[in-house]
């Protein structure tokens, strides 16, 4: 079981978290003007890279924060863990 470093709570076992998917996917700023292809790619298409991947994790049984984890999909090594940028 992986040990995931939550930027707010520290290292916790994987069971406390929910996977949030590829963190690099961006929702089109104006969906109405997005092409069918762009929208389709956003909703349905995800890369499945071998190696480092930036992904979202949600600390469901903890602080309820989404954060970004850079994880090697081959080795499961956690390369980085950072909070999402705050915009106020």
């Amino acid at each position: 079981m992986m040990l995931i470093p939550c930027p707010w709570c520290g290292e916790r076992a994987q069971v406390e978290f929910a996977y949030g998917g590829d963190a690099t996917v961006k929702r089109p700023a104006d969906p109405a003007s997005a092409s069918d292809r762009e929208w389709h790619d956003y909703v349905f298409v995800r890369d499945n890279p071998k190696g480092p991947l930036d992904e979202l994790w949600y600390h469901a049984a903890g602080c309820r924060r989404y954060f970004r984890v850079r994880r090697d999909t081959v080795t499961h090594a956690i390369l980085a863990s950072t909070p999402l940028p705050e915009i106020t």
């Binding site: 469901a60 989404y66 705050e86």
Partner: peptide
Amino acid sequence: RHLEYCLQVLWP
């Protein structure tokens, strides 16, 4: 969880 995703990831 969906609301948290929207608030934290889509529209912070």
